[in-house]
Computed example of a mutant assay.
Amino acid sequence: MPLLRTRRDAAFASAAADVGAGEGLDPLLGAATFGERLRHLLADMQADPRLSRVNRIAAALYEPATDLVKTFVHASDGPDPVGSLSMRLSAFPGMVEAARTGLPLVVDDLTVGGGGAAVTLGLAQRGYRARCVMPVLNNGTLFGFLFYNSFQAGAFSRAALAALRPHNRVAALMIVHELSLLRTVLAAVRTVRNISVHRDEETGGHLDRMSRYAQIIARRVAPMHGRSDEFVEYLFHYAPLHDVGKVAVPDSILRKPGRLTAEEFAVMQTHVVKGLEIVATIQRDLGFARLPHGDLLRNVVGCHHEARDGSGYPFGLKGDAIPLEGRITTVADVFDALTSTRPYKAAWSNADALAFIKDNAGNRFDPDCVAALVDQFDAVEEVQRRFADGAAAD
Rank of each mutant, 00 (worst) to 15 (best):
A58R: 10
H74F: 15
V107G: 01
Y313E: 06
D336N: 14
M174A: 13
R39A: 12
G78F: 03
D108F: 01
P104R: 11
G287P: 04
L142I: 03
G94I: 00
E325Y: 10
K256S: 13
Q152L: 10
A130N: 10
T203F: 09
A171C: 08
D285W: 12
R37A: 14
F288D: 06
K70M: 07
I195S: 06
G122Y: 06
D389E: 14
L182Q: 12
R212A: 01
A31S: 15
A218W: 00
A155I: 03
L61G: 00
V197I: 14
A124H: 09
M87C: 02
F151W: 08
V69S: 05
L4Y: 13
D229V: 02
Q283N: 12
C303E: 08
R100W: 09
Y148Q: 02
A155H: 09
M45W: 01
P49L: 11
V107N: 03
V273I: 11
A393H: 10
G114W: 08
R209H: 05
D375K: 14
V249E: 03
L235G: 02
A11M: 11
N360I: 00
A218L: 05
R129L: 08
V192W: 03
N360F: 05
A17P: 00
V119M: 10
E178F: 05
R183Y: 12
A239I: 01
T141H: 15
A58D: 02
K274I: 00
S90R: 15
T329I: 07
G115R: 06
V19G: 00
H271M: 05
F12P: 01
T6N: 14
A58W: 01
D352T: 09
A31P: 00
K246G: 01
D285G: 01
A332I: 01
R131C: 06
A99Q: 02
A11R: 14
S84E: 11
F34M: 12
H225Q: 11
A21R: 15
L146R: 02
A60I: 02
A13F: 06
V54M: 04
E178K: 05
N363E: 07
L296R: 09
R131H: 13
H225W: 09
G258F: 09
E306K: 12
R129Y: 09
A16K: 13
H305G: 02
P27Q: 13
N149G: 07
Y234V: 01
L241Q: 10
V73D: 03
V170S: 07
H304Q: 08
V380Y: 05
T111M: 14
K246S: 06
D320W: 09
Y234P: 00
L182V: 01
F231E: 08
S52I: 07
N138V: 00
N363W: 06
I57E: 08
D26Y: 04
D394C: 06
R37H: 02
L123N: 05
M95T: 03
L38K: 02
S84C: 06
D48M: 08
S157R: 10
P257R: 13
V112G: 03
E63Q: 12
C369Q: 05
G275S: 12
D378M: 05
L29Y: 08
R342N: 03
V106A: 04
L181R: 15
L38N: 10
G35I: 04
V331F: 10
R220P: 00
Q152D: 14
Q269Y: 09
V374I: 11
P223Y: 04
